[in-house]
Design a protein around this nucleic acid. Structure first.
Lengths: 239, 239
DNA sequence: ATTTACACGTGTTAAAAATACACTTTTATA
DNA sequence: TATAAAAGTGTATTTTTAACACGTGTAAAT
């Protein structure tokens, strides 16, 4: 408590008459199910807007920074650690939350849709929606999702973040479908594969995935060490 | 006061026990002086860190959203309205400000360095620094400047925001020097001009600028209407 | 009057990257 | 053993980017 006391003493002259606000953290959680991008939403359990769909969120606590708060919120809903997450934007319209002056810092997260704790999300009345038929969301959460989607699209072009959305082993076709979903357009199979191979950051396994064809498709892994080494040598991922 | 009362009543059950914080807004103000990028800094007039250089900032007020607060802060220092401004990132390390738990939302702004109110900035003990020899800044302000620079570099490639930093009329050479400053590398004169001309969003004036050569250099203006029309037709600025 | 110095303005060619495009292979199942 | 369904693979064309050098106009100096 010492530092807090000291802070409060120091603060009297300059800070104390300033307005204080509540800060929320809201997370746009993306997943990918072989065909399309999905987001995880919860049915809100309290007023205002009780019963409507919303992003998962929580309030920033005194002893946390925003990244920690976002991780806490995400972990609470999915049971997952070590998730790719990025701060997106801070929303501050005066009446965005009709109940109280609250600002919200939006984060987006990419998760392997197969890995989260299904019990936990059921318990939290959460549900995956494909982006196309997601319900209308409370407050400014629709705008948050749109901004997250735009950011994801941009990032996916310059960083191999797509791997966060895939299982550890994946086929070239899955990778391509993911990029098609992110970029919102069809890609040419041959061009896509030869471009990706030119990066030389994938490991081709001996295993095949037999679930999608009779012939079977080779599985690949992302070679993160090699990627990092290449980046240090000046390589930049541009798809 | 009615809405405030109502808010406070509604809020009791769900919001009242949450921690509240102070929210600051800090602005990275970029200018361009024919040769290099500069930022406007102020000597801080109060504790903590009194006398050190910092970004200009202020606290968010109850009745403002962040954009409005950033505009207010900027106007207070430069006297300027209608400035290009963009929210950058929210900084939240628990001890970023040793005096009080304060988060800061950073904004960056682009201004025509010739236009601001020189009296006003003197009165506020502010000063322009070239990015290279800017002093060390308080708190996490150095990180803010770096992030702003990275954002500016990225944005300048996909939007013609450079014009915000130039006077209304400019020469091709000035435009090129600005892009060189933003991108941190020399560009080829012929390639630069022919690329820019291919966009067809400049108006060549009959006037010449005689200040930099005996021959004189034609002045240009940015054709914003034409640019906007083109964007609507699907044109995208990529330099 | 002539020369000098200085930035202005302009086009072509070669290399690299992006795009368009179609057939053979494999194998489970009918 | 014929079929169906996805896997896997290479080349030619177009577009974009990068590299590169010299004549012009004019004020100032001689």
């Amino acid at each position: 408590m010492h530092t807090t006391d000291q802070k409060e003493i120091l603060s009297l002259a300059y800070y104390d008459h300033e307005d204080k606000v509540l800060l929320a953290v809201d997370c746009i959680i993306f997943g990918f199910d072989q065909e399309e991008l999905k987001i995880l939403l919860v049915k809100r359990g309290f007023e205002p807007e009780k019963g409507k769909w919303s992003l998962i969120g929580g309030f920033l606590k005194k002893e946390e920074d925003l990244d920690i708060a976002a991780i806490r919120v995400l972990h609470h809903l999915t049971g997952l650690h070590d998730i790719y997450m990025e701060q997106l934007y801070t929303y501050s319209k005066v009446d965005r939350d009709p109940a109280y002056r609250t600002l919200s810092v939006a984060y987006y997260a990419l998760i392997d849709i197969g890995k989260h704790d299904k019990e936990l999300i059921k318990k939290n009345s959460a549900q995956w929606f494909s982006l196309k038929d997601a319900p209308n969301l409370i407050f400014d959460h629709n705008a948050m999702v749109e901004r997250a989607m735009a950011r994801l699209r941009r990032r996916a072009l310059s960083k191999p973040i797509g791997f966060e959305l895939l299982p550890e082993k994946f086929t070239m076709r899955q990778l391509q479908k993911l990029y098609e979903a992110i970029m919102g357009k069809k890609l040419d199979k041959r061009n896509f594969i030869s471009k990706f191979n030119s990066f030389d950051i994938l490991i081709k396994l001996d295993e095949k995935d037999m679930s999608s064809s009779k012939k079977g498709a080779f599985l690949y892994k992302f070679n993160e060490e090699k990627y990092n080494r290449k980046v240090e040598e000046g390589f930049s991922f541009k798809i």
